[in-house]
Design a binder for these strands. Sequence first.
DNA 1: GCCGTTTTCGGCCCGACTGTTTTCAGTCG
Length: 571
Amino acid sequence: MTNEEVIEILRRIADMLEIKGEDRYRVMAYRRAADNIAHLGRDLSDLWQEGRLREVPGIGEALEKKLDELFRTGRLGYYEDLQEEVPVGVASLMAIPEVGPRTAKLLWERLGLMSVAEVEKAAREGKLRELPGLGARSEQRILEGIEALYRRSTRIPLYVAWPIAQDLVAQLRALPVVEQADAAGSLRRMKETVGDIDLLASSVEPAAVTDAFVKFRRVKEIAAQGPAKATVRLDNGLQVDLMVLEPARFGSLLQHFTGSKAHNIALRERAIKQGLSLSEHGFKRQDGSEILCRSEEEVYQALGLQWIPPELREDRGEIEMAAAGRLPKLVELGDIRGDLHVHTRWSDGAATIEEVANKAQALGYEYLVISDHTKGLGVANGLDEARLREQRREIDRLNDTFDNFRLLQGAEVEIRGDGSLDFPDEVLAELDVVVASIHSGLRQDRETITARMIKAMRNPHVDIIGHPSGRILGQREASLVDLDDVLIEAQKTGTILEIDGIPDRLDLDDVHVRRAVEMGVRLSIDSDAHSLDGLEAMYYGVMTARRGWAEKKHIVNTLPLVELLASLKRP
DNA sequence: GCCGTTTTCGGCCCGACTGTTTTCAGTCG
């Protein structure tokens, strides 16, 4: 039973309980437990075997018992009983925007609807408007919700949403009535994917801002519009929320809209203990008087907390650390001294070695590792021994022309199906840095692919494992490789695990970066560039590292060249 | 359902917008 399967069951139970009208805190408890399992970064079944389920926040006596049954038998009686009362299809209706538990129940009880397609058909036939509490407008909104669901059923990558958000922010800032405008939400927290775009603005005339906003270019549909808030959908189906308040409240607004939801809930619980009520408007004392926060720092200060970087705001321990004044000093782009994984025209890159070297210097790097593909990856024009040695001469020649900058020769070698590499050790020994990656056989079963990666890590020449999970956001799931075992092996062998900055890889992901940091496993942040612009992907890699609580000391390519070379496991 | 600087029981975040309402429930973030 995988984490994903457990999470799905817990979320379905929450939906079913909500439709039944059960206590909302019980519903929330199931969702909270599911979220915390999703952020675990390791197999829940392992924790179960070790008898440590209760260590997961949100898992108490009752859930421990249910999970134990699930892991032992593969089934859960409670869940099966629930399905007698509320079919799973009914719970699935809640995926439709505008349809919550009450409406789902209504559609099921009155019309027997149990799938999105059935709801769509009934809505088109005008049957929904007959139901108590619904009308023609609601019917139309549900139809629009279904269309939005079909158009965009998954979250979109950060790098796709980013330029769209920047364009919208620019349009907001161009409005004369707007004082400040920014993007917040999961975008500001640098999550790898975002579900929507959250914007905020300050103005003494909020209604004028929302009025102008709903007329922005690319806005196709207005889902809601009031004086302080508006929600629209763009031509590509992406939802954008805007919230506007007066400038004196901008700090509270920014804090509120940056989230995450779990972080905000935890902050508000903390506020209550101090006799305060916290919202996007600011703090309210019990006598009704207000504390306004123009800056975000003031919000955290009022709660006795250090300012918390947005990347950490997931309620995964950051509030406790901020209270103790012990937040990590997260790695920054400026800490990066070199890129350890870059391709050139020698294999499948678009630029010459000289061009990427110049770009690296323009980025302020002290060193750059040329790590082209090797012969095992024919489709990428991988290098054989002869071309590798020829490339070395080119690198040596260029190095003679540089001051205060050094090119290193590496390679991204293939981890073959059996865990062997596509170069013998004596060839690997000629390289300054060896990155080893899996590009084929990604669908091997868990044991095989894990053993394969571990075998590569045990090779004394392999310094770095490239993009360990092999996932590509929105296209390819991660391989089944057991990253827990890989982390342990990295600990043993001193192998560095890569955070690949290509924005649809971001591999390791934030959750496993956090595990690596906790375990003391060394990490590198690389661009894996295949073009000059590609080197700038370092930015997304750094953001992922930050979300994983990584500090400068955890990232090997923040080291000066000499120290970096000394720290590699050269035999 | 969980959980403990007041708690092993009684709490558990806060507000905006919409539609169908005549004072508010439902949904969302």
